[in-house]
Protein backbone atom coordinates (compact mmCIF):
# COMPACT_ATOMS: atom_id res chain seq x y z
CA UNK A 1 0.00 0.00 0.00
CA UNK A 2 1.52 3.34 -1.00
CA UNK A 3 0.78 6.25 1.33
CA UNK A 4 0.49 9.72 -0.21
CA UNK A 5 -1.88 12.61 -0.58
CA UNK A 6 -2.40 15.49 -2.95
CA UNK A 7 -2.37 15.36 -6.69
CA UNK A 8 0.96 13.99 -7.91
CA UNK A 9 0.35 14.87 -11.55
CA UNK A 10 1.78 18.42 -11.27
CA UNK A 11 4.72 17.18 -9.25
CA UNK A 12 8.03 15.91 -10.61
CA UNK A 13 9.66 12.77 -9.26
CA UNK A 14 12.88 14.06 -7.74
CA UNK A 15 14.10 11.13 -5.67
CA UNK A 16 13.80 7.35 -6.07
CA UNK A 17 15.73 4.12 -5.61
CA UNK A 18 18.99 4.20 -7.61
CA UNK A 19 19.28 1.76 -10.56
CA UNK A 20 22.34 0.10 -9.06
CA UNK A 21 20.26 -1.07 -6.08
CA UNK A 22 17.87 -3.97 -6.59
CA UNK A 23 14.31 -3.51 -5.21
CA UNK A 24 15.02 -6.08 -2.51
CA UNK A 25 14.18 -6.21 1.14
CA UNK A 26 17.46 -6.15 3.04
CA UNK A 27 18.32 -8.17 6.13
CA UNK A 28 19.79 -5.16 7.98
CA UNK A 29 18.25 -4.22 11.33
CA UNK A 30 15.79 -1.30 11.50
CA UNK A 31 17.76 1.98 11.51
CA UNK A 32 21.07 0.35 10.55
CA UNK A 33 23.01 2.81 8.39
CA UNK A 34 24.44 0.04 6.22
CA UNK A 35 21.30 0.65 4.19
CA UNK A 36 22.26 4.29 3.72
CA UNK A 37 25.84 3.36 2.77
CA UNK A 38 24.51 0.90 0.18
CA UNK A 39 22.24 3.59 -1.30
CA UNK A 40 25.04 6.17 -1.51
CA UNK A 41 27.32 3.71 -3.34
CA UNK A 42 24.49 2.86 -5.73
CA UNK A 43 23.70 6.55 -6.33
CA UNK A 44 27.36 7.27 -7.03
CA UNK A 45 27.58 4.35 -9.49
CA UNK A 46 24.44 5.59 -11.25
CA UNK A 47 25.67 9.18 -11.45
CA UNK A 48 29.01 8.14 -12.94
CA UNK A 49 27.37 5.58 -15.26
CA UNK A 50 29.45 2.75 -13.80
CA UNK A 51 26.77 0.15 -13.04
CA UNK A 52 27.72 -2.10 -15.98
CA UNK A 53 31.44 -1.89 -15.29
CA UNK A 54 31.43 -2.30 -11.53
CA UNK A 55 32.32 -5.40 -9.54
CA UNK A 56 31.57 -5.51 -5.82
CA UNK A 57 33.73 -7.55 -3.46
CA UNK A 58 31.53 -8.30 -0.46
CA UNK A 59 33.05 -8.93 2.97
CA UNK A 60 32.19 -11.33 5.75
CA UNK A 61 30.16 -9.42 8.30
CA UNK A 62 26.70 -7.81 8.29
CA UNK A 63 27.28 -6.78 4.70
CA UNK A 64 27.97 -10.38 3.63
CA UNK A 65 24.85 -10.28 1.46
CA UNK A 66 25.72 -6.90 -0.07
CA UNK A 67 26.24 -8.41 -3.51
CA UNK A 68 22.61 -9.57 -3.51
CA UNK A 69 21.35 -6.02 -3.06
CA UNK A 70 23.38 -4.38 -5.81
CA UNK A 71 22.48 -4.75 -9.47
CA UNK A 72 26.17 -5.25 -10.37
CA UNK A 73 28.51 -8.24 -10.64
CA UNK A 74 29.51 -9.41 -7.19
CA UNK A 75 31.88 -11.85 -5.47
CA UNK A 76 32.15 -13.08 -1.91
CA UNK A 77 35.51 -12.64 -0.20
CA UNK A 78 36.86 -14.54 2.78
CA UNK A 79 36.83 -12.51 6.00
CA UNK A 80 39.30 -9.65 5.68
CA UNK A 81 40.56 -10.65 2.24
CA UNK A 82 38.39 -8.44 0.04
CA UNK A 83 41.27 -6.07 -0.84
CA UNK A 84 43.40 -9.00 -2.04
CA UNK A 85 40.49 -10.43 -4.00
CA UNK A 86 39.81 -7.02 -5.52
CA UNK A 87 43.48 -6.81 -6.50
CA UNK A 88 43.21 -10.12 -8.33
CA UNK A 89 40.17 -8.93 -10.26
CA UNK A 90 41.50 -5.42 -11.01
CA UNK A 91 44.89 -6.62 -12.21
CA UNK A 92 43.28 -8.94 -14.79
CA UNK A 93 40.44 -6.61 -15.78
CA UNK A 94 41.60 -3.02 -15.17
CA UNK A 95 38.67 -1.71 -17.19
CA UNK A 96 36.32 -2.83 -14.39
CA UNK A 97 35.55 -0.55 -11.47
CA UNK A 98 36.29 -2.71 -8.44
CA UNK A 99 34.94 -1.87 -5.01
CA UNK A 100 35.40 -3.55 -1.66
CA UNK A 101 32.70 -2.92 0.93
CA UNK A 102 34.00 -3.84 4.36
CA UNK A 103 33.12 -3.54 8.03
CA UNK A 104 35.55 -2.77 10.85
CA UNK A 105 36.00 -6.42 11.88
CA UNK A 106 36.78 -7.26 8.26
CA UNK A 107 39.10 -4.36 7.48
CA UNK A 108 40.59 -3.19 10.79
CA UNK A 109 41.00 -6.60 12.39
CA UNK A 110 41.62 -9.75 10.35
CA UNK A 111 42.18 -7.83 7.10
CA UNK A 112 44.69 -5.17 8.21
CA UNK A 113 47.57 -6.63 6.22
CA UNK A 114 45.49 -6.79 3.06
CA UNK A 115 44.17 -3.22 3.33
CA UNK A 116 47.58 -1.74 4.20
CA UNK A 117 49.17 -3.43 1.21
CA UNK A 118 46.55 -2.40 -1.36
CA UNK A 119 47.11 1.14 -0.11
CA UNK A 120 50.86 0.63 -0.18
CA UNK A 121 50.67 -0.65 -3.75
CA UNK A 122 48.41 2.22 -4.77
CA UNK A 123 46.05 -0.47 -6.02
CA UNK A 124 43.44 1.14 -8.26
CA UNK A 125 40.44 0.00 -6.25
CA UNK A 126 37.94 1.80 -4.02
CA UNK A 127 37.16 0.68 -0.48
CA UNK A 128 33.97 1.63 1.37
CA UNK A 129 34.87 1.11 5.04
CA UNK A 130 31.82 1.00 7.31
CA UNK A 131 33.01 1.61 10.87
CA UNK A 132 30.36 0.87 13.53
CA UNK A 133 32.81 0.00 16.33
CA UNK A 134 31.46 -3.52 16.82
CA UNK A 135 31.11 -6.98 15.25
CA UNK A 136 27.48 -6.87 14.16
CA UNK A 137 26.78 -10.16 12.37
CA UNK A 138 28.18 -12.35 15.13
CA UNK A 139 26.17 -10.61 17.81
CA UNK A 140 28.02 -7.57 19.09
CA UNK A 141 31.55 -8.41 20.09
CA UNK A 142 34.29 -5.84 20.63
CA UNK A 143 36.05 -4.70 17.45
CA UNK A 144 39.45 -3.01 16.99
CA UNK A 145 37.48 0.22 16.56
CA UNK A 146 35.38 -0.23 19.72
CA UNK A 147 35.85 2.77 22.00
CA UNK A 148 37.53 2.61 25.41
CA UNK A 149 34.87 1.71 27.94
CA UNK A 150 32.45 0.53 25.25
CA UNK A 151 30.40 -2.41 26.53
CA UNK A 152 30.11 -5.26 24.03
CA UNK A 153 29.35 -8.96 24.28
CA UNK A 154 33.07 -9.62 24.57
CA UNK A 155 33.92 -6.64 26.76
CA UNK A 156 31.02 -6.80 29.20
CA UNK A 157 32.60 -4.37 31.64
CA UNK A 158 33.59 -2.02 28.85
CA UNK A 159 36.67 -2.12 26.63
CA UNK A 160 39.75 -1.90 28.86
CA UNK A 161 42.67 -0.37 26.96
CA UNK A 162 45.14 -1.88 29.43
CA UNK A 163 44.33 -5.32 28.06
CA UNK A 164 42.80 -4.65 24.64
CA UNK A 165 44.50 -1.48 23.54
CA UNK A 166 42.96 1.47 21.77
CA UNK A 167 40.71 1.82 18.69
CA UNK A 168 42.59 1.75 15.39
CA UNK A 169 42.27 4.91 13.30
CA UNK A 170 42.40 3.30 9.87
CA UNK A 171 42.01 6.44 7.77
CA UNK A 172 44.92 8.12 9.53
CA UNK A 173 46.96 4.90 9.23
CA UNK A 174 46.31 4.37 5.54
CA UNK A 175 46.87 8.03 4.73
CA UNK A 176 50.55 7.42 5.52
CA UNK A 177 50.96 5.16 2.49
CA UNK A 178 52.33 6.80 -0.62
CA UNK A 179 50.06 4.70 -2.83
CA UNK A 180 46.88 6.09 -1.26
CA UNK A 181 45.47 8.88 -3.45
CA UNK A 182 42.26 9.63 -1.52
CA UNK A 183 41.48 8.58 2.05
CA UNK A 184 38.72 10.40 3.91
CA UNK A 185 36.44 9.79 6.87
CA UNK A 186 32.76 10.78 6.76
CA UNK A 187 29.73 9.92 8.87
CA UNK A 188 26.14 8.80 8.33
CA UNK A 189 24.69 10.17 11.56
CA UNK A 190 22.71 13.05 10.00
CA UNK A 191 21.48 14.35 6.65
CA UNK A 192 24.24 16.93 6.10
CA UNK A 193 26.94 14.32 6.75
CA UNK A 194 25.18 11.77 4.56
CA UNK A 195 25.29 14.24 1.68
CA UNK A 196 29.03 14.84 2.29
CA UNK A 197 29.59 11.09 2.42
CA UNK A 198 27.88 10.77 -0.96
CA UNK A 199 30.23 13.37 -2.48
CA UNK A 200 33.25 11.57 -1.05
CA UNK A 201 32.12 8.25 -2.57
CA UNK A 202 31.68 9.91 -5.96
CA UNK A 203 35.17 11.41 -5.68
CA UNK A 204 36.66 8.07 -4.63
CA UNK A 205 35.16 6.39 -7.71
CA UNK A 206 36.53 9.17 -9.91
CA UNK A 207 39.97 8.54 -8.41
CA UNK A 208 39.69 4.92 -9.58
CA UNK A 209 38.32 5.95 -12.98
CA UNK A 210 41.36 8.20 -13.48
CA UNK A 211 43.73 5.49 -12.22
CA UNK A 212 45.20 7.73 -9.57
CA UNK A 213 45.71 5.01 -6.94
CA UNK A 214 44.00 3.65 -3.84
CA UNK A 215 40.83 5.37 -2.61
CA UNK A 216 38.91 4.76 0.59
CA UNK A 217 35.93 6.37 2.27
CA UNK A 218 35.51 5.47 5.95
CA UNK A 219 31.89 5.89 7.06
CA UNK A 220 31.04 6.12 10.76
CA UNK A 221 27.96 3.98 11.02
CA UNK A 222 25.47 2.69 13.60
CA UNK A 223 24.56 -0.68 15.10
CA UNK A 224 21.31 -0.04 17.02
CA UNK A 225 20.73 -3.70 17.84
CA UNK A 226 24.11 -4.51 19.33
CA UNK A 227 24.62 -1.09 20.90
CA UNK A 228 21.28 -1.58 22.61
CA UNK A 229 20.01 1.78 21.39
CA UNK A 230 17.08 3.01 19.31
CA UNK A 231 17.93 4.05 15.75
CA UNK A 232 17.75 7.71 16.83
CA UNK A 233 19.92 7.20 19.93
CA UNK A 234 22.42 5.28 17.79
CA UNK A 235 22.86 8.25 15.46
CA UNK A 236 23.40 10.46 18.48
CA UNK A 237 25.91 7.96 19.90
CA UNK A 238 27.97 8.27 16.75
CA UNK A 239 27.90 12.07 17.07
CA UNK A 240 28.61 12.23 20.79
CA UNK A 241 31.08 9.33 21.19
CA UNK A 242 32.59 8.27 17.87
CA UNK A 243 33.25 11.69 16.35
CA UNK A 244 35.64 12.81 19.11
CA UNK A 245 37.70 9.64 18.67
CA UNK A 246 37.33 9.38 14.88
CA UNK A 247 37.46 13.00 13.64
CA UNK A 248 35.86 13.51 10.24
CA UNK A 249 37.98 14.96 7.46
CA UNK A 250 40.26 14.38 4.51
CA UNK A 251 43.35 12.43 5.53
CA UNK A 252 44.98 12.02 2.12
CA UNK A 253 44.03 13.90 -0.99
CA UNK A 254 46.81 14.05 -3.58
CA UNK A 255 46.93 17.09 -5.84
CA UNK A 256 45.61 15.24 -8.89
CA UNK A 257 42.46 14.40 -6.92
CA UNK A 258 41.83 17.99 -5.90
CA UNK A 259 40.85 18.78 -9.48
CA UNK A 260 38.24 16.02 -9.71
Amino acid sequence: MISTNGNKSTLELVYERPQSLLPMYTHYCPGCTHGIAHRLVAEALDELGLREQAILVAPVGCAVFAYEYFNIDGVEAAHGRAPAMATGIKRIQPENIVLTYQGDGDLASIGTAEIIHVAGRGENITTIFVNNAIYGMTGGQMAPTSLPGQKTSSSLCGRDPRTTGYPLKMSELLAQTTGAAYVVRRSLHDVANIRKAKKAIVTALKVQMQGLGFSMVELLSTCPTNWGLTPEQALQWVRDNMLPYFPLGDYKVIDAVKGL
Partner: peptide, 18 residues
Protein backbone atom coordinates in the same frame (compact mmCIF):
# COMPACT_ATOMS: atom_id res chain seq x y z
CA UNK B 1 13.77 14.67 0.34
CA UNK B 2 15.37 14.76 3.80
CA UNK B 3 13.22 11.74 4.68
CA UNK B 4 14.54 9.83 1.68
CA UNK B 5 18.14 10.70 2.55
CA UNK B 6 17.88 9.49 6.14
CA UNK B 7 15.81 6.37 5.28
CA UNK B 8 18.08 3.31 5.58
CA UNK B 9 15.80 1.14 3.46
CA UNK B 10 15.14 3.26 0.36
CA UNK B 11 11.39 3.25 1.07
CA UNK B 12 10.59 6.81 0.07
CA UNK B 13 10.11 8.34 -3.39
CA UNK B 14 9.85 12.11 -3.40
CA UNK B 15 7.81 14.37 -5.70
CA UNK B 16 8.19 18.12 -5.93
CA UNK B 17 6.42 20.88 -7.85
CA UNK B 18 8.51 21.80 -10.87
Amino acid sequence: AVCAVICPDVCISVYREA
